[in-house]
């Protein structure tokens, strides 16, 4: 069992290494992708500087917390899209029958599939996340926490995407729904929860888990709270379990080609 896990991880890293090698074939493009993404994300800081010139706090969030939120959200996005890029394009893999290659390998189908490609600009998001964190202020415990939450948040993001893209096993237009949900997660995660009220706020801490993946970590880094920490970790684990159940349920309906969209 332990051996199997080790071998699986070896394959994942080899696969990421090879994808990275491919992207590095053109160094200018690689660098411009990363650097422009950092600049791109910096524009969010400008937006909040303007907003804070109107009002000096947003609920519990001062400028510093909002910037931490933006950094963490970028970091989470970067982690998810660098290591698990294919989970955001899973419908295409399913609909074009490209899952075949992973099914015949003696490895975990879902893991092999979603780690089979990387997004270079996601490195820019990770870098931006790091810069923002350093700007926020380094301390050893908060650094560890920041990157634990980058991982749990990233995994939640990946799980949501896999769950909705897996609906492609059942429905034709599932990719559109999944893209919408993914975009919503990203959009919402760069605004503090204090601007939302009532039912929406409740949704953000349940069905659309931006609250658990992004808001709770900011609260914990600002002042540590063991209960919130446990919630973050356990929700992440719960999502992983649900994701595997749904994906493997759908896999039974896999049709291995574009036969489904045959026209008459």
């Amino acid at each position: 069992m332990l051996m199997a896990v080790r071998n699986q991880i070896k394959v994942i890293f080899l696969s990421i290494k090879y994808a990275l090698m491919r992207e590095l074939l053109n160094k200018t493009t690689f660098l411009s992708n990363v650097i422009f993404m950092v600049l791109n994300n910096s524009s969010m800081i400008i937006q909040w500087l303007i907003l804070f010139s109107i009002r000096d706090n947003f609920g519990d969030y001062g400028l510093k917390q909002v910037i931490l939120l933006i950094g963490l959200s970028s970091s989470i996005y970067g982690f998810a899209h660098f290591f698990f890029e294919k989970s955001f394009k899973l419908s295409e893999t399913i609909n074009t029958g490209k899952l075949d290659a992973y099914i015949v390998q003696p490895k975990n189908i879902l893991l092999s599939t979603i780690t089979s490609d990387i997004q270079v600009s996601a490195l820019g998001d990770l870098l931006f996340g790091l810069i923002v964190y350093l700007f926020y202020g380094f301390s050893f415990p908060s650094f560890i926490l920041y990157y634990i939450f980058t991982m749990t948040g990233g995994l939640i993001l990946v799980c949501i995407s896999v769950i909705f893209h897996s609906l492609s096993f059942w429905f034709n237009n599932a990719d559109l729904g999944a893209d919408t949900i993914n975009n919503m997660m990203i959009n919402v995660s760069t605004y503090p929860d204090s601007i939302f009220k009532g039912a929406v706020k409740w949704l953000l801490f349940t069905i659309i888990p931006v609250g658990i993946a992004n808001y709770i970590p900011v609260k914990i880094i600002t002042s540590f709270n063991p209960y919130l920490f446990i919630i973050n970790i356990s929700v992440c684990l719960l999502f992983i379990v649900i994701t595997f159940i749904i994906f493997y349920k759908g896999l039974r309906r896999y049709s291995s080609s574009n036969l489904m969209s045959a026209r008459i």
Binding site: I54, N187, Y191, I195
Partner: peptide, 20 residues
Amino acid sequence: FGYVGYFILLFILFNLWKYL
């Protein structure tokens, strides 16, 4: 679905201005 995306963005900004 595109409209849903539009609606979400609008909704966030409405909340933001309402708060401000």
